[in-house]
């Protein structure tokens, strides 16, 4: 049994409302959750929040209860809530909701380490899933997984992907990417002459290679500036502020960088 401080006599005789309980014993509850091994320190607020919600569904907010009675219900609720959280974390690559929010913040700030740590690890499972369930070749499964990684990266960064069942969502997205390719291939093969509607935003491999070569010719400042502005959607004003330059100077610099990229592209193509 949990060695809860509920057994302490000082609580047992108090008659309080749930609102009072919440105000009085929040810190006590947090400490108890950690010492009883229900959660890590960084998760405790989230677990406590869920326990309090659960308590509110069991007790009236205005009615008075013996505080020991409320405390006695907590271990059961904590166990149930932690079980739910654990299950939810399993569905989300081991991330709690809070950890996912932190990951999103990190990504938005340009720190990709946690994203890579979590999602690259899942690639193997995703490749295996596509091969097993869709008969995809290893190469196709790999490419579809890569494409999905990119979509997830952008989706989380843009707050378009929310916590819930990330594992399912990732695998589903990868499946859709693969099916889309297959459909396109099936369409291509029987009627070669047909003018297929390709993804208008996709560049062919040859163009991408030329682009990579041209990009490699850019200096670090230029590449960084173009990436920030066009890819990360950071305004020129914000960039200027970070670089301690005027927005006008940055705008001109950006224009020069674009011209450089174009000239390199033109030279090699």
């Amino acid at each position: 049994m949990y060695s809860l401080s509920i057994q302490n006599q000082k609580f047992s005789d108090d008659y309080i409302t749930l609102t009072q309980f919440e105000a009085m014993y929040q810190q006590e509850l947090e400490t108890w959750l950690i010492t009883q091994g229900f959660c890590q320190a960084n998760e405790v607020k989230h677990v406590k929040f869920r326990i309090l919600i659960s308590l509110k569904s069991s007790f009236s907010l205005t009615e008075c209860y013996q505080s020991s009675l409320i405390w006695k219900s907590i271990p059961i609720i904590a166990k149930r809530e932690c079980g739910k959280i654990k299950k939810l974390m399993e569905k989300n690559f081991g991330l709690s909701e809070l950890a996912f929010q932190e990951l999103a913040v990190q990504l938005q700030g340009g720190d990709e380490r946690l994203f890579e740590q979590i999602f690259l690890r899942h690639s193997k499972d995703c490749i295996a899933y596509l091969m097993k369930n869709y008969g995809a070749s290893h190469e196709d499964a790999y490419d579809a997984t890569m494409e999905t990684l990119l979509s997830f990266h952008k989706g989380i960064k843009a707050a378009k992907i929310n916590y819930g069942n990330l594992r399912f969502l990732f695998t589903k997205m990868a499946s859709q990417v693969y099916i889309k390719w297959i459909k396109r291939e099936n369409l291509k093969n029987p009627i070669q002459e047909m003018d297929l509607v390709e993804d208008p935003k996709a560049f062919d491999q040859e163009t991408l290679q030329l682009l990579a070569q041209a990009w490699a010719g850019l200096c670090q400042d230029c590449a960084g500036l173009l990436q920030k502005f066009y890819y990360e959607n950071i305004s020129l004003k914000e960039i200027a502020l970070k670089l301690n330059k005027s927005p006008e100077a940055i705008r001109k610099q950006k224009q020069r960088c674009v011209e450089k990229l174009k000239s390199y592209f033109l030279r090699i193509s």
Binding site: L120, I127, M146, L149, L150, W215, L226, Y231
Partner: peptide, 24 residues
Amino acid sequence: IVNAQVDQSKKADWQQKLASQYHI
């Protein structure tokens, strides 16, 4: 083109990490 290039380099980076860290 910038997006395509950054996507491309990200993929290349992840491919390298997948190979070195996860042997995929």
